[in-house]
Design a protein around this nucleic acid. Structure first.
Lengths: 189, 189
DNA sequence: CAGAGTGATGACACATGATGTCATCACCTA
DNA sequence: TAGGTGATGACATCATGTGTCATCACTCTG
């Protein structure tokens, strides 16, 4: 159990997830996590800015993936076309085969408002990233902001519905349904 | 300076706002706030669930106002028609004459991610309230969720743009522009 | 008008979250 | 093999947030 046992971050993540699932997020203290991981409290906060962040460590790469997709999309596509294409392309490989993990994670998050807040911040960040890339493609500020917001809304609504329906039908179908309803809803007025 | 000096909550709000503006949110401690208000730290947390909440005390009533509007809208209106009508009706009287206060508040919020998180939670709550009222009017889950999300998106984007433009043009015009661009963006694909 | 009840506040203790600082150890490299 | 580098341990410390009980102001009732 000496020092320099690599994988400290992974051990902390695993221990935290286990304890959150066992006793809930609020009832789990950082010392409990670090005890299970064989580390000290101080080390936890060297790897994660705060207690909530450990639940989002696995999703760190998403903004970069999404930004890359938007940047690499054919220049001729309009902002919303990029968004639709992106939702259909990126979400399935990212989530389809992680249903159990995502459901467990969502169950933990549902019982703590603070975690919900953090999730919203991650989504807002994703929206900002998309908006920035859309502007880089030539979209004006307002169009970029709205298309980015719509992307994140469809992303989140679809994922939520898919998880609540236990993964049936497939995520791609849920996304398409959400996009269709969005089209009719926003086209109404 | 004895007890029972009514208006404790107001004094706490005022003292907090002043200190946040003077020294920043993170640099202001709750004991500093309560010292200025002539109260104890414990009393602060009896009035506000946490340090952030004091900045949102003035916006507490918005969900109820919005919910009432949606509930009272003509039953014949489609969800998105209710949303559009609501945005045009509710936002101006709520914000138009509070430009200075809103800008100050936004400046404080811009320098702290935690405050930004809390604002997102308030917006998410507003979206949930709108979605619930739309479902109560007969809208299906997906339509209600999307229309509510669009309402909050337009609300937030418009308010942000209006504040960043120093209140010129009028909020109503900004809302209309945002709605127009939303229509074209979401109608594209 | 006196006394009981009610609700807000004070006072105190305490757990937890989060950060600064310095020592220490493992691993890598010259 | 000596030194450098980076991660961790150990310790101190502050701020946030909560539980608990006493105390005071105000109100209601007889």
């Amino acid at each position: 159990m000496g020092r320099w046992q690599s994988g400290a971050r992974d051990r902390l993540e695993r221990a935290a997830l286990e304890l959150f699932a066992e006793h809930g997020f609020a009832e789990t203290t950082v010392p409990q996590i670090t005890a299970r991981a064989g580390l000290t409290t101080r080390t936890f906060f060297r790897h994660f800015a705060d207690k909530r962040e450990v639940l989002f460590a696995g999703e760190d790469g998403i903004p970069a993936v999404v930004a890359g997709f938007v940047a690499d999309a054919p220049p001729a596509l309009a902002p919303m076309e990029v968004v639709v294409h992106g939702l259909r392309t990126v979400m399935t490989p990212l989530f389809e085969d992680r249903l159990d993990y995502l459901r467990m994670r969502r169950a933990v998050m549902a019982e703590d408002e603070g975690l919900h807040e953090r999730e919203l911040r991650k989504l807002a960040h994703l929206s900002e990233v998309i908006g920035r890339e859309l502007r880089r493609r030539g979209a004006d500020d307002l169009t970029a902001a709205l298309a980015a917001a719509l992307a994140v809304t469809v992303f989140n609504v679809s994922l939520t519905r898919w998880l609540e329906a236990d993964g049936e039908p497939a995520l791609a179908a849920v996304v398409d349904e959400t996009l269709a309803v969005l089209h009719s809803v926003a086209g109404d007025h």
